[in-house]
Simulated assay, not measured.
Amino acid sequence: MPAYADEVQVAVAANFTAPIQAIAKDFEKDTGHKLVAAFGSTGQFYTQIKNGAPFEVFLAADDSTPAKLEQEGDIVTGSRFTYAIGTLALWSAKEGYVDAKGDILKANSWQHLSIANPKTAPYGLAATQVLAKLNLSESTKAKLVEGQNITQAYQFVSTGNAEIGFVALSQIYKDGKLSSGSAWIVPANLHEPIKQDAVILTKGRDNAAAKALVEYIKGPKAAAVIKSFGYEL
């Protein structure tokens, strides 16, 4: 336990909301540092970071945004690493609605398909890649409902505004099982890998809590939590 504790401001991709909340409890208990998280889409965070937002650590939903920040000199050199590999799922809040092979997509018997904004949310981009791969981009275009981020994409489905939606597996899965509804876990070969990278931003350079958090996320305790939400490591 450090003699004095620091606070770390963390920008967290929306798909990682539940895991970081679980990790934060252990991190605070084990290190004495405090984690203050903001949740949103990776693209929006990029803009906020460039505009001077006070974030010290960034847990993105892709690897390209942190790489870009690295090229632009906005991170602590050598701090970038992959903390999780995300899994995409097609989900319905209704039991038995989505089949295990995702054939419901082709059946086109639904009115609305929810996805996150592909311009700012990597899971939304992955969803569009899946539709393209299955030759469904045209037939589904008029039925797409776009959330600002993956949390909103999930909310459209959970509230019934969309019968189905592409969400992060971590939003609907805990300890090896689906928490509600029905889902198709999208095979990884239908989209580019969702490699999620973390960085210490320049503002966190001298913050002991920022360094401690990054080390903690690399550790076995956090790894167990990350895996329990359906991520690969």
Rank of each mutant, 00 (worst) to 15 (best):
M1T: 02
P2L: 09
A3H: 08
A3S: 11
E7A: 10
E7W: 06
V8T: 12
A11K: 04
F16Q: 01
P19F: 02
I20L: 15
I23K: 04
F27P: 03
E28M: 02
T31V: 01
G32N: 04
H33E: 04
V36R: 13
A37R: 12
A37G: 10
G43K: 06
Q48P: 03
I49A: 10
G52I: 12
A53D: 08
A53G: 07
A53Y: 08
A53S: 14
P54A: 13
P54I: 08
E56Y: 07
L59H: 06
L59W: 07
A60G: 13
A60C: 07
A61T: 02
P66I: 07
P66W: 01
A67L: 12
L69W: 10
D74H: 14
I75M: 05
G78D: 03
R80H: 08
R80V: 11
L88C: 00
A89F: 10
L90Q: 05
W91L: 03
E95P: 12
I104K: 14
K106F: 06
A107M: 11
H112T: 13
H112Q: 12
L113M: 08
I115R: 10
I115C: 05
A116W: 09
T120H: 11
G124N: 11
A126H: 08
L131N: 03
S137T: 15
E138S: 15
T140L: 15
K143V: 01
K143L: 02
G147Q: 07
N149T: 07
A153T: 05
V167G: 05
S179L: 14
W184Q: 06
W184I: 02
V186E: 02
P187H: 05
A188Q: 14
A188H: 11
H191W: 09
E192R: 13
P193G: 09
I194W: 11
K195W: 11
R205P: 00
A210P: 06
A210T: 07
P220Q: 14
K221W: 08
A223K: 15
A223I: 11
V225N: 07
K227L: 08
F229H: 08
E232T: 14
